[in-house]
């Protein structure tokens, strides 16, 4: 017996560490979410330290639910996450099917494709919002500027000049406004996570039943119906996994929002929590609990799926 007890004890450090890591901060968040707790308040200094006598019940939750910021942040979080999911899954499937067959330089293409995934989020955001999307000095600005210049010179051309004078000048888009910066975040995260989807779909495509496929070809099935009736059903499970894992990661998207949208109103839940945490800890904690609930809705499905394959 003792020979087997020691090995089992070996998991206790890991389990204890994770237990403390999960329970203490989360327990505090739960506690703070039920009391009045602000960092600065000259008129009610008793609220500036956490204490049970400042019990507020569900008051913080009510406050958060009634604040415009919260509803906007939830809506915006979902908008950003769903857009990224939609784009990465579609692009991921197309690219995975494209590069799954051998062709010259397949290895190099794979390496090129996977690279964005390893770029740290802060660099990703700084790179895109400045060097690429900036409306004046970035590539976008330069491209728009040169197209306008070209149009200008065409307008002075003989014969066809009148035609081009009907064309308007292009206006560059500033990606630092509220709505457009959400688009910028979607673009940069899609760029970073499409490789992840490609990699997973490719892994899955390699286990596709080749005999079935050959039979389909012999039966004269078109490429489209092979894809529609064999490949796509085969990918159903990996698609579900990609969607859920990305949903969990992107619900806590932070660095990109912080860099692209600081102060311009494009908020998601983690960003809003950060804002609340500058003063109103009660509200920040209540928002945090909502974020946990939202993530758990996805996590339960994901865990169930992982659990099925775990012990195989």
């Amino acid at each position: 017996m003792s020979a087997r007890k020691l090995p089992r004890l070996l998991q206790t450090p890991a389990v204890l560490l994770l237990l403390v890591w999960m329970l203490i901060p989360l327990g505090m968040t739960l506690y703070f979410s039920f009391i009045r707790y602000v960092l600065n308040n000259l008129r009610r200094p008793e609220w500036t330290s956490p204490s049970l006598s400042n019990w507020r019940g569900f008051g913080n939750y009510e406050f958060v639910l009634n604040s415009k910021d919260f509803l906007f942040a939830i809506q915006n979080s979902l908008f950003i996450v769903c857009s990224i999911l939609f784009l990465t899954v579609i692009l991921g499937i197309l690219i995975a099917v494209l590069i799954n067959k051998t062709f010259p330089g397949q290895g190099i293409v794979r390496v090129l494709l996977i690279s964005p995934f390893f770029v740290m989020p802060a660099v990703n955001a700084v790179l895109w919002i400045n060097m690429i999307l900036d409306p004046v000095l970035g590539l976008q600005g330069i491209a728009v500027g040169s197209i306008n210049e070209l149009l200008d010179s065409l307008r002075n051309a003989p014969l066809l000049g009148w035609f081009f004078s009907l064309w308007p000048d292009l206006a560059p888009i500033s990606f630092r406004a509220t709505q457009t910066s959400a688009y910028a975040v979607i673009i940069m995260v899609t760029w970073q996570w499409t490789p992840f989807a490609v990699l997973i779909f490719m892994t899955s495509l390699q286990s596709e039943d080749q005999q079935q496929k050959e039979a389909a070809i012999l039966d004269g099935a078109s490429t489209w119906s092979q894809f529609r009736f064999l490949t796509l059903p085969h990918l159903a499970r990996p698609i579900a996994i990609v969607v859920m894992i990305q949903a969990i990661f992107h619900l806590s998207l932070y660095a990109e929002i912080e860099i692209v949208s600081r102060g311009n109103g494009n908020k998601n839940l983690p960003y809003l929590i950060g804002e609340f945490a500058n003063n109103n800890i009660g509200a920040a904690s209540a928002t945090g609990i909502f974020a946990v609930i939202l993530a758990n809705i996805v996590a339960i499905f994901l865990l169930r799926m992982i659990g099925k394959t775990l012990m195989e």
Partner: peptide, 12 residues
């Protein structure tokens, strides 16, 4: 535990 949003425990 990996799936808990980090921001939820920011202040604690």
């Amino acid at each position: 535990t990996k799936m808990l949003p980090a921001a939820a425990v920011l202040y604690p």
